[in-house]
Amino acid sequence: MLEISQLAKSYGDIVALTDATFTVEPERLVGFVGPNGAGKSTTMRSIFGLVAPDHGTISWKGKPAEHASRRQFGYLPEQRGLYPKMKIGDQVSYFAQLKGVSPREAQTKTSTILEMLDLGDRVSDPLEALSHGNQQRVQLAVALVHEPELLILDEPFNGLDPVAVSVLRDVLRQRATEGAAVLFSSHQLDLVEQLCDDVVVIARGEIQATGTVRDVRRSTGTQLAVVEIEHPETDVSDAFAGLAIIDVEHADGRSIARLELQSTSELGAVVAGARNCGQLVSLNYQPPSLTDIFKELVR
């Protein structure tokens, strides 16, 4: 388990992180979301010792993360970069060996990962001969090749075509199933919502929410109910007196009211109010999407 505790970092007057605390557990896919400049990359770079935090600790399996333990980590940095003239097979194998994999094993693992990322036939090509998208895949191969127990990926889905996105989703899911702890940042919240087990929301250098995607979606007090009433006999606003009405629309003899609920227990009042008013046609109630939560948390 990766434990990040009270991590803080400032660059002169600019505060990048104030108090970041969260964990990434094995077999969990964790989405790391937050607006630009919220401190995601600073956090991720700290895990690899590329940033010296002013304060706070990072531990892996209960011990402070240091050079030795980072052998088990895989990294996709925000600033992508590899050797342009080096053959991709040599390149992936080189980075595997820098993680302590033996040359022979590195070769096997390199073939496996390049095959998995559909680059099996490009092994002998220099990186610069590949398209931008394929260079991204090589970068991923480098992060994955040594089968790390902890994967830290900074915006891994950026710049990928839909096919590559789907390949990467499968790979990440598979790695988590095999026992890896996976933390990746992304601005694609719907993707995070579908793919991740857990989510960490960060804004202004502070963690705003952590937990399972489900818990985080239910974490805010306000939840949305959409009620559709046919032939309302009384004023819809009166029917829902005491509840927080966002707006009411009237069309074709129907009224659609959107209500903000403080808790699930108010659902009863919604149903009762609707029945008093007219014919209840539909009630759509669900916790806000991650996008809604995100907007609220980072506001």
Binding site: F48, G49, L50, G81, Y83
Partner: peptide, 9 residues
Amino acid sequence: KVVELILSS
């Protein structure tokens, strides 16, 4: 920018 990746190892 490859230095970032190298120094992570």
